[in-house]
Simulated scan of single mutants.
Amino acid sequence: MSTPQSGAEQSAEVERFRPTSGRFTGIVLLVSAFAVASLSVVQREHVIPEVGAAALFLGVVAWAVTLRPRISLVGDRLELRGAVDTVAIPLAGIEELAVRQVLAVRAGDRRYVSSALGRTRRQLMKAKAGAISLTASDPDTDPNSRVAAPNYAQYVEDRIRHRVDRARAAGGLTRGSTEQVALGSQVERSMAWPEIIGLAASAALFVALVVL
């Protein structure tokens, strides 16, 4: 029999989830940008500096937009790491969440979106068809009915919902209550300064090379 977790143990819980899309494209763009930027330095007679600076800028964009976004459960908060910032939302303050083509979370009467988790249109259509099929048949009496295994996006959504429900119960909060909305507004946001500086510096370098 498992023993109840203490507050310290719960606050130390960390679950990090891999992004569901964009990784391959981001890696290809990043490697290509690095290769072109390197050639502009090594082969100056064949690749003009402006092209190298543009490739450097696109490489930073590729990293920030496709590779940096990630979703994590860290203690009593849901962390949504985006292109240029990270938002930490109190789990007990989350009012609603849904995974469509992106993850959408509502907390403190505000909506937060993460592109790190999503379903393809095919997966959405398949899930809708499965829901209709289950409604039309009774899986307890119909031997031909089968519940499809959840995909990774569904698994992550279930994990987040589980942690949200547990945090809400631990705090004695009612969904949609004034207390929950107030807690949901206590969102912490930190800026991704390396990415912001990289974007600004590479863009400034490109402009300077074009002007000069």
Rank of each mutant, 00 (worst) to 15 (best):
Q154E: 15
W193K: 14
S133N: 07
R121F: 05
A208H: 01
V51S: 07
S115G: 10
G176C: 02
Q5H: 06
V28G: 08
L67Y: 01
E9W: 03
L78H: 01
L212A: 12
S202Q: 06
A33H: 04
S190M: 13
A8W: 00
S38Q: 09
G26P: 06
L199A: 03
S145T: 14
S32Q: 09
P19M: 02
I196T: 11
T135K: 14
T20W: 08
P143C: 04
A88Y: 05
R111N: 13
V187L: 10
H162W: 07
E9R: 07
E9N: 05
R159D: 01
A92G: 15
S6T: 15
S190A: 15
Q10H: 10
L30Y: 08
G176R: 01
V47Y: 02
A149M: 09
V156D: 00
V207W: 01
S38H: 05
R189H: 13
G176Q: 01
G26E: 07
V47E: 00
I197L: 14
A204W: 04
K128G: 06
G172M: 02
R77C: 01
N151T: 04
P49R: 03
D109V: 01
F57S: 05
R122W: 10
R166E: 14
G52W: 03
A116K: 00
R100P: 03
L124V: 04
R100M: 14
S115I: 07
V105A: 00
G59C: 09
L134T: 01
D76L: 04
L212E: 09
T178Y: 09
K126L: 10
V28P: 06
A170C: 09
L30M: 14
R166H: 11
E95M: 13
A12P: 04
D140K: 11
S32M: 13
R163L: 11
L29D: 10
E195P: 06
T25S: 07
A88E: 10
V211Q: 01
R146N: 11
T20F: 10
R166Q: 14
I160D: 01
G59T: 08
H46D: 11
S190C: 11
S72T: 01
S177E: 10
Q123H: 07
V156Y: 00
A148I: 10
G59Q: 06
A83Q: 08
G93H: 12
S2R: 10
R100S: 15
S202V: 10
S6M: 04
T3M: 10
A170W: 08
F57K: 02
L205T: 12
V28H: 09
T25V: 08
P49S: 03
A64E: 04
R23Y: 09
P69L: 08
E157K: 09
V28Y: 05
S145D: 05
R146P: 07
